[in-house]
């Protein structure tokens, strides 16, 4: 671990904290444009966070200590995830702490806490949301793992830094398996981040909601942390997708110049990615909750196909 590595790590964490709400704001803006609505300000999520932090916390009478601890735990998990994902450079002191499989585990930990917190107050919506969140979880995780398996086979490693380094510094080889894995990853990211075909982040009071149903009882700083954590999750998934499937421009080592060059490129990639996300959300309708297994089943199938194609075409020949 070098000094500049540690610096890059701290910088990546700070950048995640700052950029994550911006990304959510940007997606919201793009969505509004695409739907011919007046766009909210780009900085809306920051105003929201500030407002929520300043408000009092209103707790339900029977909310337990777990309910109060959960937002902090979830925030911690998501921040850790952002620290592990190689956003700007692959030389991160935190990277060995968790490889791709452990990253799935960290997301799983956050999921369990948010589901439990949803069940804590004991309202109808809370337990409904918790149950659906776990449903999406067990459907998405196998697909996500198969995506990581395919990538791990290409890079001969499950460490995210090594995977990204291998993919960024290879000769131009077309891997059909990567295309399959990429589509599958997109599907999984949509489901995991409660985006449109599976869930709608912009609505309360809809009987099919998932994420919002769990956090209905949260207020004030707790809600702020949960919202922040949700945008960190979106940021982590976006950066992960960009790093894995469009890895060009990520600094290989502790080179300050390369690091500086990586920032505008990351911003550009995130902007395009956010726009595409908004486009996907606009052209698709939210599906019934019991179509979600089919949607994520397709993702799983694509990931498995990617793995098989990898084994057939790219190893044996």
């Amino acid at each position: 671990m070098s000094f500049s590595g540690a610096l890059a790590q701290l910088f990546a964490i700070a950048l995640a904290l700052v950029l994550a709400p911006l990304l959510s704001g940007w997606v919201g803006q793009c969505r509004a444009w695409l739907q011919s609505r007046t766009a909210p300000p780009l900085l809306l999520p920051y105003y929201m966070l500030r407002k929520l932090f300043e408000k009092d916390v209103v707790l339900a009478h029977n909310a337990s200590s777990l309910f109060r601890a959960a937002p902090f735990v979830i925030f911690g998990c998501m921040l850790l995830a952002c620290a592990i994902v190689p956003t700007l450079s692959t030389d991160l002191p935190f990277a060995p702490a968790a490889d791709a499989l452990a990253l799935v585990g960290i997301f799983g930990l956050a999921r369990i806490f948010i589901a439990l917190a949803g069940m804590d107050v004991g309202t109808a919506f809370g337990s409904l949301g918790g149950r659906r969140e776990m449903l999406v979880g067990f459907l998405a995780e196998p697909a996500l793992l198969m995506v990581f398996f395919t990538l791990a086979m290409i890079a001969q490693s499950t460490s995210l830094a090594t995977i990204v380094e291998t993919l960024a510094h290879r000769e131009l080889i077309i891997y059909p398996s990567l295309a399959f894995a990429g589509v599958a990853f997109t599907f999984v990211s949509l489901a995991e981040n409660a985006r449109v075909p599976v869930d709608n982040p912009a609505t309360h009071l809809e009987l099919t909601m998932i994420h919002e149903a769990m956090i209905l009882e949260y207020t004030g700083r707790h809600l702020a942390l949960i919202e922040w954590a949700a945008s960190l999750k979106l940021y982590a998934y976006s950066c992960l997708g960009l790093a894995l499937f469009f890895p060009w421009g990520i600094a290989p080592g502790d080179n300050i110049l390369a690091l500086a060059a990586a920032i505008p490129l990351l911003l550009l990639k995130l902007a395009i990615g956010g726009f595409l996300l908004a486009a996907i959300e606009t052209v698709n309708a939210k599906m019934r909750i019991f179509r979600a297994p089919e949607f994520l089943g397709t993702a799983f199938m694509l990931a498995v196909l990617g793995l098989l194609v990898r084994l057939l075409l790219e190893v044996k020949v």
């Binding site: 059909p176 398996s177 295309a179 399959f180 196909l305 194609v309 790219e314």
Partner: peptide, 12 residues
């Protein structure tokens, strides 16, 4: 590589 890619898409 291209043919492999197209074959994979056909499978897809």
């Amino acid at each position: 590589q291209l043919i492999n890619l197209f074959a994979a898409v056909i499978l897809l």
